[in-house]
Amino acid sequence: MIRKSFVLIAALAAALSLFAGTASWAGQSLMMATTTSTDNTGLLDYLIPYFEKETGIELKWTATGTGKALKLGERCDVDVLLVHAPGAEKAYIKKGFGKDRKEIMYNDFVIIGPDSDPAGIKGKSISDALLAVKSKQAIFVSRGDDSGTNKKEKLLWKDAGISLPDKEKWYVQTGQGMLASINVCEERKGYTMTDRGTYIKYQSQKGGNAPLKVLVEGDQILLNQYSVLTLDPKNCPNAKYDLAMKYLNWMAGENAQNLVRDFRLLGKKLFIPNAK
């Protein structure tokens, strides 16, 4: 009896693996690396079915940090990128990894902090706010993970003429995602920079009574530009350049731009389309 049952289990497992082996995709499909913000906000889940329906191309995506997304493209493991790090993207094309870059949409970053605002940054310009944080030695939480958001934050310090804090006691580098970092920030009653989408999520989780409030916003430098990037066929001859171009053009097209404009996260607008 026992022997029979063992054989049965082995057979079942074998059948399962066969089933798994046949589950590969036939037909046109495109592999994209993107940043967690587009995935976590639900934008892609909302948008991509329209793309697949209109073009017949299946789009699969893996959501990771911008750094890893660019790396995946460089190694030709994906066909197209949707990222938000304009500086790095331009350098990427220069190095011969990327070919076409199309700006699609933007959202913005905000500085949040406790209602009590110990450093008194509310309403200040971004540079003044950061200077105030530094001089008051107020807690500032950073992602510290070299993600697109983290890159942006570093840029803000540089722009304010402050050398990048690292080992300072008041500068907390979490190495985690945005939401986890906001939670750390709340626990430590500090300030942090976040994309607005994640902040909206955080706010809704707290039932509209979030201890952390938006204190600085609207500065031109706080805009967060998303672009579609195709890969240079010279570097990646096997990447599906033609399908990637179709995707790029579709995203920049009127239909997709309207869809982006209509997208709501918890009832709030998140992305502003700006394809030219």
């Binding site: 967690t36 976590n40 699969k60 995506w61 893996t62 959501a63 939401l179 994640t198 999520k201 989780q205």
Partner: peptide, 22 residues
Amino acid sequence: GGNIKWHTRTMTTAIALETGKG
């Protein structure tokens, strides 16, 4: 696996994603 929806999203990567989304 890349945590690709409908393809390589396993229970554990789905948990990681949901947690990341809050």
